[in-house]
Amino acid sequence: MTEIAKPHLRPADPRFSCGPTKKHPGWSPEKLATALVGRSHRTPAAVQRMVEAYERTAALLECPADYKIAMVPGSDTGAMEAAMWSLLGPRGVDVFAWDAFGGRWAKDAEGQLKLEDLRTFIASGGETPDFSQAKPDRDLVFTWNATAAGARIPDTDWISDQREGLTIVDATSAAFAMELDWSKIDVLTYSWQKSLGGEAQHGMIVLGPRAIQRLAEHTPSWPVPRILQLHNADGTGVIEEIFSGKTLNTPSLLCFEDYLLSLKWAAKEGGLPALLARVDRNFAALSEWVGKTGWIDFLCTDAARRSPVSVTLKFVEPEIAGLDQDRQWQLTRKMCALLERENAALDVNPHPSAPAGLRIWCGPTMEADDIAALGPWLDWAYQSAKSEF
């Protein structure tokens, strides 16, 4: 390998993973010392902390007052499947997908729920589907921001103000990082391990009044696993207790403490506007480097649909872009190994389902200075790895 001069300045924190993501500034394990470990999750003290987490979540996300929040098992996957299994059925369903996770919901709707009146609109490679196909009398299932594809919805104009169906939104990498139009959201799900840098395995579900009404009026025709059930034991109405600290399974109180710590940090930063401003600064720092770098570009070519959070990049230098994907992935893996060896950048590889290239997290817990310092190291790794091709 040809020896190429290394940059002088390393990022202060080399963690750029798109999930689980970097902890918020100032985090340390010692700050979890007050966690109720070894206590029952049913004890009043534990329930109080869960309710506090829900209340802080609602305030930070600026949820309407009549929306309800609960923790569910299984990360965002569990939350989305709980919503789909419990709510879909009475109307036709449109699923819009453009990455691996959206594709999972399309497969669930077709292969697991076996919905008879189902339409799927699929895109890939940094593109998004034709949202104009959405119909107001049908339920809509989609991701707000496709973490693996680096593309997001451009706006919510395609969702009718007079819609009759529900919108079920996977917002796992959009919550706390992008503006959410609550007038167009009936169900929203996300996981702790994305924008706030929380621990994995726990998911959150936010239900609006139209979704709660659907639960009261609709009983699924298929069996719903107990761990995903939002209905009462008799199959009617929502389990109200889950919004007041009664969980569907045993949660980690250590993880709850960590989530609370993240919520408190976000509030001290200045709430949602401050989090969005951090994302803007981070994305601007990365965009400045991309704009002056000839070998890399955004996978999503449409700026209006480009994710500012889970930024996915592709190789564009002709001698590399012309290689097949296997060879391009070899380059990606070599770059990542070099960067990890130097402790300059960790986990900047794309999702396995995405094209070869890079993926950089620019969420609220990141620092713009670290992202600015990252660019020269990516240049170094690319030139060093390319010398073997």
Rank of each mutant, 00 (worst) to 15 (best):
Gly19Leu: 05
Pro29Trp: 11
Leu32Val: 12
Leu32Lys: 08
Val37Thr: 13
Val37Arg: 09
Ser40Leu: 00
Thr43Pro: 14
Val47Leu: 08
Gln48Met: 09
Gln48Val: 07
Ala59Phe: 02
Glu62Arg: 11
Glu62Gln: 10
Glu62Trp: 06
Cys63Ile: 09
Asp66Asn: 01
Asp66Ala: 00
Tyr67Gln: 02
Tyr67Val: 01
Ile69Tyr: 01
Pro73Lys: 01
Asp76Lys: 12
Met80Lys: 15
Met84Leu: 08
Leu88Thr: 02
Pro90Phe: 05
Arg91Ser: 02
Trp98Val: 03
Trp98Tyr: 10
Glu110Asn: 12
Pro136Lys: 04
Arg138Gln: 05
Leu140Ile: 10
Phe142Thr: 10
Ala146Val: 04
Ala149Gly: 15
Ile153Pro: 08
Pro154Glu: 06
Asp155Arg: 14
Trp158Ala: 09
Leu166Met: 01
Ala177Met: 07
Ile185Asn: 01
Asp186Trp: 00
Tyr190Val: 06
Met204Gly: 15
Leu207Gly: 00
Pro209Met: 00
Pro220Gly: 00
Trp222Tyr: 06
Val224Ile: 08
Pro225Asn: 01
Ile227Ser: 03
Ile227Lys: 03
Leu230Ile: 01
Gly235Ala: 01
Ile239Ala: 09
Phe243Cys: 01
Gly245Tyr: 01
Gly245Leu: 00
Lys246Phe: 12
Ser252Trp: 04
Leu261Arg: 08
Leu263Ala: 06
Lys264Val: 12
Gly270Asp: 06
Leu275Trp: 09
Val279Ile: 09
Arg281Asp: 11
Phe283Met: 12
Ala284Gly: 11
Ala284Pro: 11
Ala284Arg: 08
Leu286Asp: 06
Ser287Thr: 15
Cys300Thr: 14
Ala303Met: 13
Arg306Cys: 07
Ser307Trp: 10
Ser307Tyr: 10
Pro308Gly: 09
Val309Arg: 03
Lys314Pro: 07
Glu317Met: 09
Glu319Asp: 11
Glu319Val: 13
Ile320His: 07
Gly322Tyr: 02
Leu323Met: 06
Trp329His: 13
Cys336Thr: 13
Ala337Trp: 12
Glu340Pro: 11
Glu342Ser: 08
Asn343Val: 15
Val348Leu: 03
Asn349Glu: 13
His351Gln: 08
Ile360Gln: 03
Trp361His: 13
Gly363Glu: 05
Glu367Ala: 14
Asp369Pro: 14
Ala373Tyr: 09
Pro376Gly: 04
Pro376Gln: 05
Leu378Glu: 05
